[in-house]
């Protein structure tokens, strides 16, 4: 099996999910300069709601094709998440619109904890296994394998990104969103109600999060009330990598982060295999163990989560504005 190609495929899959979640962070930031740290929890709620609906349909033994069952899960998750996103803005962030920027930021972290605890009350603390209702066929592709779920996730993400781009650049509401992001008081002079645009932005971001949650849950076959936390942080890192506030940046950042993570995970054990490196001082002991086990690995694939945050730190040090972002001083 070709590890490189395999990890590219895996990275594209998780990267697509990161991109869809990162879009939510970047859209909200673009319009009100708030990092909505509760966004990851909206993704989790999407996965949980879809899981519940799918289990209910499967449990009722309805003779429906698997794709219809999953679709029903998605269609149930979207309005629930949109409602959560709308309420988040209305209840938690709007009263703090003119407060110092630290206040909404801390509120966002608080909302993240509240949503997590609510999910714990509703769905319990045990991880829920997504039922394997879809036949996960694998196709071979140049020495690597790509599954039908992976193909579905990548295609779905591309479709979502295309629709969102069309919406933001071609519809009146989308142009009003960009105008509000640039100058909220002048947008008001045009008759644009900032409250409506901001609410709309949260609703769209939450809708994307719902789909991302189902994709993530289906891919890993599991949903858990804490799953939104790390996923949210990674997607936030992806948005920063691409340049926060920039839509194309969030898409690029998500895909790149997925690839970095997959390739890093794929190769870290090989690169940190002490048997392949001349280690001074412990040759005797090491040679014995290498002879016995074949490899002595310093860091294994359980270090997967490290890469996203390494990338975040590197971006913040070397290019704080991100790959496609403008210099921060230029932002209104």
């Amino acid at each position: 099996m070709d590890i490189f190609l395999q990890q590219i495929i895996n990275g594209l899959t998780t990267g697509s999910v990161y991109a869809i979640v990162a879009l939510g962070y970047t859209m909200v930031y673009g319009v009100i300069q708030l990092i909505n740290f509760a966004h990851g929890e909206v993704v989790m709620i999407g996965a949980m709601v879809a899981f519940t609906v799918i289990m209910a349909i499967v449990g009722a033994g309805a003779p429906l094709p698997p794709i219809v069952i999953v679709l029903a899960g998605v269609l149930a998750a979207i309005p629930v998440c949109m409602t959560v996103g709308f309420l988040l803005e209305r209840v938690a962030y709007r009263p703090l619109r003119h407060a110092p920027r630290l206040a909404p930021l801390i509120t966002a972290i608080g909302m993240s904890i509240i949503l997590q605890q609510l999910a714990l009350l509703i769905w319990g603390r045990d991880p829920r296994a997504f039922p394997q209702i879809m036949e996960n066929t694998s196709f071979s592709l140049g020495g690597a394998a790509i599954s039908s779920v992976q193909i579905a996730i990548i295609l779905m993400s591309i479709a979502l990104m295309a629709v969102l781009t069309w919406f933001v650049y071609r519809t009146k509401f989308g142009i009003a969103m960009r105008a509000t992001a640039e100058n909220v008081s002048v947008a008001g002079l045009m008759g644009i109600d900032a409250n409506r645009v901001i609410a709309g932005t949260f609703i769209i971001a939450a809708g994307l999060a719902a789909v991302a949650g189902v994709m993530y849950g289906t891919y890993y076959g599991i949903a858990h009330y804490t799953m939104g936390f790390i996923l949210g942080l990674k997607a936030f890192s992806a948005a920063v990598l691409g340049g926060i506030g920039n839509l194309a940046g969030a898409m690029l950042g998500g895909i790149l982060l997925g690839l970095v993570e997959a390739l890093g995970t794929g190769y870290i054990s090989e690169f940190t295999d002490l048997c392949k490196w001349p280690v001074v001082g412990a040759e005797g002991m090491l040679m014995e163990r290498c002879a016995a086990d074949g490899h002595v690995v310093l860091f294994g694939s359980n270090y997967q989560d490290v890469f996203a945050f390494l990338v975040l730190i590197m971006v913040l040090v070397f290019r704080p504005s991100g790959l496609l972002g403008e210099r921060v001083s230029e932002r209104a």
């Binding site: 009146k172 142009i175 009003a176 960009r178 105008a179 640039e182 100058n183 002048v186 947008a187 045009m190 644009i192």
Partner: peptide
């Protein structure tokens, strides 16, 4: 709106 096109600016009006 510096990042919008001229036509988009006019549409916002």
């Amino acid at each position: 709106f510096a990042r919008l096109t001229v036509a988009e600016n006019l549409a916002m009006g």
